[in-house]
Protein backbone atom coordinates (compact mmCIF):
# COMPACT_ATOMS: atom_id res chain seq x y z
CA UNK A 1 0.00 0.00 0.00
CA UNK A 2 1.42 3.39 -1.01
CA UNK A 3 0.73 6.69 0.57
CA UNK A 4 0.37 10.20 -0.82
CA UNK A 5 0.68 12.99 1.70
CA UNK A 6 -0.68 16.49 1.31
CA UNK A 7 0.49 19.11 3.77
CA UNK A 8 -1.48 22.33 3.95
CA UNK A 9 -0.24 25.48 5.69
CA UNK A 10 -1.68 28.95 6.03
CA UNK A 11 0.28 31.43 3.92
CA UNK A 12 2.91 33.25 5.97
CA UNK A 13 1.04 36.56 5.75
CA UNK A 14 -2.20 35.03 7.10
CA UNK A 15 -2.66 35.34 10.86
CA UNK A 16 -2.57 31.91 12.56
CA UNK A 17 -4.20 32.36 15.98
CA UNK A 18 -4.01 28.63 16.75
CA UNK A 19 -0.27 28.55 16.12
CA UNK A 20 0.12 31.69 18.22
CA UNK A 21 -1.80 30.06 21.09
CA UNK A 22 0.42 26.95 20.93
CA UNK A 23 3.47 29.19 20.82
CA UNK A 24 2.28 30.96 23.99
CA UNK A 25 1.48 27.67 25.77
CA UNK A 26 4.91 26.07 25.23
CA UNK A 27 6.94 28.34 27.56
CA UNK A 28 4.27 27.99 30.23
CA UNK A 29 5.13 24.26 30.24
CA UNK A 30 8.85 24.92 30.38
CA UNK A 31 9.53 24.46 26.65
CA UNK A 32 11.57 27.42 25.58
CA UNK A 33 12.79 26.38 22.13
CA UNK A 34 10.11 27.98 19.95
CA UNK A 35 10.58 31.33 18.28
CA UNK A 36 7.17 30.88 16.64
CA UNK A 37 4.70 28.11 15.78
CA UNK A 38 2.49 27.74 12.71
CA UNK A 39 -0.21 25.07 12.68
CA UNK A 40 -1.29 23.25 9.52
CA UNK A 41 -3.08 20.16 8.22
CA UNK A 42 -1.77 16.84 6.93
CA UNK A 43 -3.77 14.49 4.71
CA UNK A 44 -2.65 10.87 4.29
CA UNK A 45 -4.12 9.26 1.21
CA UNK A 46 -3.69 5.51 0.73
CA UNK A 47 -3.42 4.14 -2.80
CA UNK A 48 -2.91 0.64 -4.22
CA UNK A 49 0.80 0.03 -4.82
CA UNK A 50 3.43 2.72 -5.26
CA UNK A 51 1.94 6.14 -6.10
CA UNK A 52 2.21 6.81 -9.83
CA UNK A 53 3.01 10.21 -11.37
CA UNK A 54 -0.57 10.25 -12.73
CA UNK A 55 -1.99 9.74 -9.23
CA UNK A 56 0.25 12.47 -7.84
CA UNK A 57 -0.98 14.81 -10.57
CA UNK A 58 -4.59 13.98 -9.68
CA UNK A 59 -3.96 14.60 -5.98
CA UNK A 60 -2.33 17.92 -6.93
CA UNK A 61 -5.59 18.89 -8.67
CA UNK A 62 -7.66 17.77 -5.66
CA UNK A 63 -5.42 19.78 -3.34
CA UNK A 64 -5.93 22.91 -5.45
CA UNK A 65 -9.69 22.39 -5.68
CA UNK A 66 -10.67 20.99 -2.27
CA UNK A 67 -7.97 20.12 0.25
CA UNK A 68 -6.47 23.62 0.35
CA UNK A 69 -7.94 27.06 -0.20
CA UNK A 70 -5.30 28.74 -2.40
CA UNK A 71 -6.60 32.15 -1.29
CA UNK A 72 -5.12 31.66 2.19
CA UNK A 73 -3.17 28.38 2.09
CA UNK A 74 -0.26 26.68 0.38
CA UNK A 75 0.12 22.93 -0.07
CA UNK A 76 2.77 20.32 -0.80
CA UNK A 77 1.99 16.92 -2.37
CA UNK A 78 4.46 14.07 -1.91
CA UNK A 79 4.65 10.29 -2.11
CA UNK A 80 5.62 8.59 1.13
CA UNK A 81 6.78 5.07 1.98
Amino acid sequence: MGKIVVEVMLKPEILDPQGTAVSAALPRLGFNFAKSVRQGKRFEIEVEGEPTPAQLAEVEKAAEKLLANPVIETYVVKAEK
Binding site: L10, I14, L15, P17, Q18, A21, N69, V71, I72
Partner: peptide, 11 residues
Protein backbone atom coordinates in the same frame (compact mmCIF):
# COMPACT_ATOMS: atom_id res chain seq x y z
CA UNK B 1 -16.63 36.67 -3.30
CA UNK B 2 -12.90 37.29 -2.79
CA UNK B 3 -10.92 36.49 0.36
CA UNK B 4 -11.58 33.95 3.09
CA UNK B 5 -12.86 33.79 6.66
CA UNK B 6 -10.41 32.44 9.21
CA UNK B 7 -10.34 31.75 12.94
CA UNK B 8 -11.19 34.74 15.17
CA UNK B 9 -7.91 36.34 16.22
CA UNK B 10 -8.62 35.73 19.94
CA UNK B 11 -9.72 32.12 19.18
Amino acid sequence: LPGALTRNHAL
